[in-house]
């Protein structure tokens, strides 16, 4: 269970551990969280297991524990060394937890959870748009906490700076992910129904390496800054809203479109941006019905009214009282 938090405005020392691998995705989250903690008055260090310097911390967070461990034990058949180090780190921190950014019904989450059990970490902080508590197995629910993937202060400032500028966007859509059957079928329909000259990039599924075909965060940003609609299809059938894709689109001035093959669930009503979640059967009609400028303005406006990342961190991880976090809401 989450241990008692110290006083809200104490100069807390926070350590955020990222994988530091080629997969930029989780590292980005680590640095965003670092900014949020910093804005809340904490002193923050970011490291990998390799660069960790033993010290005392009030809080240690691992951003995707499994990736962190795998990156540390690269080339080794098991994660024994990583588990040993994490256990040693645990002895030098008051509070410890794992940050999740994935659907809890997938194997990736199962790997992380297994590692949590092996290292004795009980606090799971799920960063996203919706709580996945109902989808978790009962035994896993203890220690689960959801917090909203809002903007940091610097991200908010950036959005406010460019929200009224209108950059030319010659690319109508971008559809990017690893190649699998469902995505390939969708790409075929996308080209037939929504125009041929969008960006399609579906490399084969492989580990992310320097030599591999993946694009990194900067490259994605570069593409989205010239693209009207950033479209994706989940590669699993479980209900999950990929909040980082929405944020990536926002930061590049693009409009995110999540295409799903099911009707909205009961939970959908509580989600933001449901107007950007289109059903696969008639996504093209809905997309054509959009006025790009209007839907972009609405998306930006809506995102700016949502709680900030600082607010989520303060309330959920630091357990600060609501009034103390109002400035960051």
């Amino acid at each position: 269970m989450l241990q008692d938090a110290p006083a809200p405005n104490a100069a807390r020392r926070v350590l955020i551990v990222v994988a530091g691998s080629i997969n930029y995705y989780y590292d980005t989250i680590g640095y965003r969280l670092a900014e949020a903690f910093h804005n809340l008055g904490s002193v923050v260090d970011v490291c990998t297991l390799k660069t960790y310097q033993p010290a005392e911390y009030d809080l240690t967070l691992y951003v995707n524990l499994y990736e962190v461990a795998v990156a540390y034990c690269k080339g080794q058949p098991d994660l024994v060394e990583a588990i040993r180090l994490i256990k040693a780190m645990k002895a030098r921190t008051t509070q410890i937890g794992v940050v999740l950014l994935e659907c809890v019904q997938t194997n990736w989450f199962a790997e992380t959870y297994r590692l949590c059990e092996q290292t004795g970490i009980q606090a799971l902080y799920d960063l996203g748009f919706h709580s996945q508590y109902p989808y978790m197995q009962p035994a896993m629910r203890e220690g689960y906490h959801f917090f909203f993937n809002g903007l940091t202060q610097s991200e908010r400032r950036k959005v406010l700076r460019w929200r009224n500028t209108h950059q030319e966007r010659p690319i109508p859509w971008a559809f990017i992910g690893h190649l699998e059957k469902r995505r390939m079928l969708f790409a075929h329909r996308l080209i037939k129904r929504c125009g041929a000259n969008g960006i399609l990039y579906l490399p084969h599924l492989t580990h992310i390496t320097e030599e591999g075909p993946h694009i990194n965060g900067e490259q994605l940003q570069k593409i989205l800054e010239r693209t009207r609609y950033y479209i994706w299809v989940s590669h699993h059938d479980y209900f999950y809203v990929e909040s980082e894709r929405f944020r990536n689109a926002l930061m590049a001035g693009s409009v995110p479109i999540k295409v799903q093959d099911h009707e909205p669930t009961d939970e959908s009503a509580r989600l933001p941006f449901t107007y950007l979640m289109l059903n696969e059967t008639d996504f093209d009609e809905q997309l054509r019905a959009f006025d790009y400028a209007d839907v972009r303005d609405r998306f930006i406006r809506d995102y700016l009214t949502l709680p900030s990342l600082e607010a989520g961190v303060a309330r959920t991880i630091l357990q600060m009282p609501h009034h103390a976090t109002a400035d960051h809401a």
Binding site: L179, L202, P203, H204, G212, P213
Partner: peptide, 14 residues
């Protein structure tokens, strides 16, 4: 008429 696969979908690699 069904799409089956994607060819030439990546840059030149080893």
């Amino acid at each position: 008429g069904e799409a089956q696969h994607l060819l030439s979908a990546e840059s030149f690699q080893d």
